[in-house]
Each structure stands twice: as structure tokens, then as C-alpha cells.
């Protein structure tokens, strides 16, 4: 039984892996810092661990998909990320592909044959 749970969890993780990137790029059109993004995604049912999300944001920044700025106005310094124009274009591409895959999966499950 535990093996079944592990199996399902593993496949779910595989399926969701790329969607976190898409969610970040889409959500960060409005600038925000890591933990606020995490809580926003969590509220929408997109779960991601903090120790995964923070390195991911840094990697996306390195790839030029996000820009960042330290906000030191408040009591604790926070790094605010924002989607760059490149990141925006990638989000559009990923989103279109996601929609296409969803449509394809629906057609398969409805029994359509090529």
C-alpha cells in the first residue's frame, strides 16, 4: 500500500515538475518575494517546497527569465523578483503548450483515434 502511495506521488511529481516554472513566470508579472510567491501558489493548490522554490528563482534569474531587486525599505530585506520580457515570452509559449497537451489528453481519453 505504501508502495502504491510512493508510486503515485512519484508520478504526480513528474507531471508537476515543469508547471512550477510556468506558475512562477506567470505569477511574477507582479513583483513579489520568494515566500509570498510560495504562499500565493500554495493558496491556489500549487504546492512547492521552499528549499526547491528559492534555488529555482535564482536559476530563472540567471537564465534571464526573471529580474530581481532587494527591497530594504522594510524591517527585513527581501529579494523581489519580476518576470522579464524574455520570461514573459517563455511563459506564453509554455502556457500554449500546456493548453495543447490538455486538449490532446482530453481527445485521447474520449477515445479519438488518429
Amino acid at each position: 500500500m505504501a508502495d502504491d502511495d510512493d508510486l503515485i506521488a512519484g508520478h504526480l511529481q513528474e507531471l508537476r515538475r515543469g508547471t512550477v516554472v510556468l506558475a512562477c513566470l506567470t505569477r511574477l508579472r507582479i513583483p513579489d518575494y520568494g515566500y509570498a510567491l510560495l504562499e500565493a501558489l500554495d493558496a491556489l493548490g500549487i504546492q512547492v517546497d521552499a528549499n526547491t522554490l528559492y534555488p529555482l528563482l535564482r536559476r530563472l534569474e540567471k537564465q534571464g527569465l526573471l529580474t530581481s531587486e532587494w527591497n530594504t525599505a522594510e524591517s527585513r530585506p527581501r529579494k523581489f523578483y519580476r518576470t522579464s520580457p524574455t520570461g514573459d515570452a517563455l511563459a506564453a509559449t509554455l502556457s500554449a503548450d500546456w493548453d495543447r497537451l490538455t486538449a490532446s489528453l482530453h481527445r485521447i481519453s474520449e477515445g479519438e483515434l488518429p
Binding site: Y33, G34, Y35, A50, Y54, R58, R76, P77, R78, K79
Partner: peptide
Amino acid sequence: EPEIRELIEESVRA
């Protein structure tokens, strides 16, 4: 360093 510090502080606050 500041990134990991922020990550820890926000996790503790949450």
C-alpha cells in the same frame, strides 16, 4: 548569504 537568510527568516515567520 542574504538569500538563504531571507529564506530561513520567512520560513520561521510562516
